[in-house]
């Protein structure tokens, strides 16, 4: 394990500065930085609630199909039932969540991640 280098130019917690720490210390420094905290929270605040939401929606659909059989067999338009509509909506939400996440990651995550990565370049 490398000992932390003294960093004259940067202060811990600001990898945006030209910090000279290397190796493990550099990772520790980045992990503690405000920038990385922002990246992590932007990711988690988006991915975790959305993950919970789609799992709840999926299991609600499974449970309705299992225990609310008559309700799911209700014909709405011609022979199309509530079960089929909810089932097709599962496809729609899956595509929708994929699109939302990609947009979020491209716009809000990638720029910070790239900055942190560039900053670490040559130090690890």
């Amino acid at each position: 394990m490398s000992t932390p280098e003294p960093h004259e130019f940067g202060t811990p917690g600001s990898p945006g500065s030209t910090s000279q720490t290397t190796g493990a210390a550099a990772f520790r420094e980045v992990q503690d930085s405000a920038e990385f905290a922002e990246l992590r929270s932007r990711f988690r605040r988006f991915a975790f609630p959305l993950g919970a939401a789609f799992l709840i929606w999926y299991f609600a659909y499974v449970l309705l199909s299992t225990y609310a059989v008559d309700f799911m067999t209700t014909r709405v338009i011609g022979n199309i039932t509530i079960g089929v509509i909810l089932g097709l909506l599962q496809f729609v939400t899956t595509f929708g969540i994929t699109w939302l996440y990609i947009r979020h990651a491209n716009k809000n995550l990638d720029p910070i991640a790239a900055k942190v990565r560039d900053d670490l370049e040559g130090r690890i």
């Binding site: 493990a24 520790r28 980045v30 790239a114 670490l120």
Partner: peptide, 20 residues
């Protein structure tokens, strides 16, 4: 191993060092 944990978290979120 806090050093390894820091390395893993930073790498997993940013891709730093992955190309290496």
């Amino acid at each position: 191993d806090l050093d390894k944990a820091a390395e893993m978290e930073v790498r997993s979120m940013t891709g730093a060092g992955a190309e290496g």
